[in-house]
Amino acid sequence: MKIVVCVKQIPDPADPGALDPESKTLVRDQKLILDESDSYGVEMALQLADANGEGSVHLVSMAPDNQIAGLRTALAMGADSATLVSDEALKGSDALSTARVLAAAIARSEPDLVLAATESSDGYTGTVPEMMAEFLELPSVTFAKAVTVDGNVAKVKRQTEAGYDDVHCPLPAVVSVTAGVVEPRYPSFKGIMSAKSKPLDQLGVSDLGIEPGSVGWAGGNQEIVRIADAPSRAAGEVFEDEGDAHERIVAFLEDLKVL
């Protein structure tokens, strides 16, 4: 079973960058790391490949400036190989462009299963996996909180507003997983060492047969027209609990007449 996992490489969330008021883009010149949201997909893939016996795990990422540190982390966790798509033409890509590029890169390895996270930590549109499925003409199940593969069928518990649905989906398919679907492993020392020699392809958009003008800024379908500070909520009073905090809370609730 061939599994492809999408891994986004993002700026460290502890240092989120800022919006440049001129170009209206995120200023993010820092080194990129593996999005924690994608560590669940990588772990899920490794477990499914293991259970399958003959599984392989390939990573696909689109990132600026040939950045590969996040891919190395996922390889160190145990993935077999990786493809990075990096190209000046991709700067400014929206979700639709991103999905088009990822789908083209994924199609090259003809996977049985494509895994991604439900939403990334930085852009969190939560639309890329389902868009990729549409480009790949594959069925898909989003919001998976549990995934098993039984023969040619992915059996997924899909989160819903009220609980979850059991969904059966024939392979090949795209599945997006939630955080908490599995417990991601830490890369071992051996894993970190071996990651350095694992195959890592680097492609540009023309390698994928994509017209550079159809993606990035040139292919953009939306435009930010205004950026403003949001009204902030005034902070209230903060008290140290000295054994009487519950009384303060009760008084507060009584004032509001909700008791």
Partner: peptide, 19 residues
Amino acid sequence: GRDVAARLSVKLQSPVITN
């Protein structure tokens, strides 16, 4: 809602403006 929006976006080549 997200699933419909994403598939529709590809089919119509329309942008999805989220959140």
